[in-house]
Design a protein around this nucleic acid. Structure first.
Lengths: 333, 333
DNA sequence: CTGAAAGCGCTTACAG
DNA sequence: CTGAAAGCGCTTACAG
């Protein structure tokens, strides 16, 4: 009993109109008399007819699909981001073809999939694109926006926090609270995000005649925990740690606690992202809040705007955010 | 400079073959001579031609798209699940149309979207489907599998942990460790998952002549924190808490700590899911590990199998999992 | 092994 | 306001 899916022709037959008319009924703004419209809608409902979005996409050259690629990483921040993108796009009538990628850089193969499915735009979070891939996308008139990343070499839209400036402010904040011996635990070092946070932090401290200790991390809790242990075993222990993201800071926090240090007394800790967990009573993490909603709105609007044009002129957007003071840093008296 | 996307016809012209032949070159298993194949492939590459998956889907009645609907909730467990589904499906040549839903029950509208995009199957995680929606799906020969939920009334595939049995074992484990005054903090009470965990827990304790205190939660940290505070302010405090998921247990853990209680001495705590965070040194949460990989494999295999047939005979699968003993429960001497 | 033709389910000038 | 027809980019019998 292979059931044929009901199509416009069938509805047309029963409603005694042409298939064109059925199509018009389902095309907002088309010219159809109220009477016919009502009859067609009735029959359609009876038959369970729904226009086929793929066929429509084929003829209109408009699929209403956006490709979203995300790096495979256990960071709640990106889970939140994914949710907001999905909901924001849906509100505007778009759907998400989702791709999880295992590499730092989106692979050719993954973009090919997007192209085959005629996505109208691509959003990439927490990963890079080679310029080769970007130009392939551009040749097909498909705009891309990088979320939380940017690249100087590759011409495409990007939105991220002004990590450099934020890190500077974090350095100054820590300095003001009296910390003098600071350390930075990085994220994956090939990410612009981590690099900028590190540069901003170091540059601001240099102004004060200070040089932070740098320990390499990779945005994970486990690595940050280890890095902190290393830091705390040094002769000259740091009195404050800035972690490249909240997960890193939480790793540092737990490592400090396990060493019997008091936070923020012995050690101040600052994160970045302001994920939900940061506000949990057991953490109360001081951190930097990224204006995620604003970033996502900008990313979506930019993408949708570009989809309507044909030539693409990349731009970057930097947003600022703000420091959220909680209890892992001491307060200046 | 609106660039027309290159199609099979164009490749055919340059390769001096028919469009059918071009199509065959891109259809594995088709009859094409090596020589023609090579030439066509060359031209195709030059032109950047890729077959249009949507057109192919239209004619073959096979889109290779699966709809995945997930409830909007900040639980890392489901982030992990999403990643594994996406990767598992991709490995088998399928793509994910992703939908975030705000309601406990998937809405008609959301399923309609899936239908319009001709998904071949639907996966629903952390949410329900009304029987009306399910039968609509079945009429269209689209199989559904519920992940981590099941429903007695609605005939569709489902896979979940044997929550009842697991909760029984947890109760017995706590009993063996000497706890006698137990409490359960539930998840959203209209979920089968939470109901079964509660029933299993209560039933097993009843066998021992015990009745646990029940406090309502909703799977969130914040709610669990409050619930625990309520529990710990009782005259007769519980000496162990079983949380409906890990996030709940972590909320309980932090609440206990904030009250100055020692865990597991004064209070034992057990969660459910074994999310990554459960193993963090600051938590070391005793919990139940669901065999997520197995569940996902089963869900995918079942879905893909059903997609090949036309009649759908729903079945449920229960998997077991195992207790992970960590440091939020005391060890029997 | 290859080509001409029909058809998947739709939209949209064009003509009336 | 409505219908007949062409066409979106593909696959697949059918015939050779």
């Amino acid at each position: 009993m292979k059931k044929k899916t009901v199509n416009a022709m069938e509805v047309a037959r029963l409603a005694k109109v042409s298939q064109s008319t059925v199509s018009r009924v389902f095309t907002p703004g088309s010219n159809v008399s109220e009477k016919t419209k009502k009859r067609v809608l009735e029959i359609a409902k009876e038959l369970g007819y729904r226009p086929n979005a793929l066929a429509r996409g084929l003829i209109m050259n408009k699929t209403n699909i956006v490709g979203l690629a995300m790096r495979d990483i256990a960071n709640p921040f990106y889970h939140e981001v994914l949710g907001k993108f999905t909901k924001g796009l849906r509100k505007r009538g778009y759907h998400v073809l989702f791709m999880y990628t295992e590499n730092d850089e989106i692979q050719q193969e993954e973009i090919t999939q997007f192209l085959e499915y005629s996505v109208e735009g691509v959003i990439v979070t927490d990963a890079y694109l080679s310029s080769k891939v970007v130009s392939q996308l551009h040749e097909n008139n498909i705009p891309v926006v990088l979320f939380n990343r940017y690249s100087k070499d590759v011409p495409c839209y990007s939105v991220s926090c002004d990590n450099y400036a934020a890190a500077q402010q974090i350095a100054e904040y820590l300095y003001e609270q009296g910390y003098r011996n600071m350390a930075f635990i990085s994220g994956r070092i090939n990410t612009s995000t981590s690099q900028d946070r590190q540069r901003g932090f170091c540059d601001a401290l240099q102004q004060k005649g200070l040089v932070p200790i740098i320990e390499e991390g990779d945005y994970t809790y486990e690595r940050a925990y280890e890095a902190t242990m290393t830091l705390l075993r040094r002769e000259q222990k740091p009195d404050a740690i800035f972690g490249a993201n909240d997960i890193t800071a939480l790793g540092a926090l737990d490592a400090a606690k396990s060493m019997g240090l008091s936070v923020p007394g012995d050690l101040g800790i600052v994160g970045f992202d302001n994920i939900q967990m940061a506000s949990w009573p057991s953490h109360e993490l001081t951190t930097w809040e990224q204006p995620v909603d604003e970033m996502i709105e900008w990313a979506i609007d930019t993408l949708l705007n570009e989809m309507k044009r044909t030539n693409v002129e990349p731009a970057s957007k930097l947003v600022s955010g703000r420091l959220i003071e909680r209890r892992t840093t001491r307060k200046k008296m």
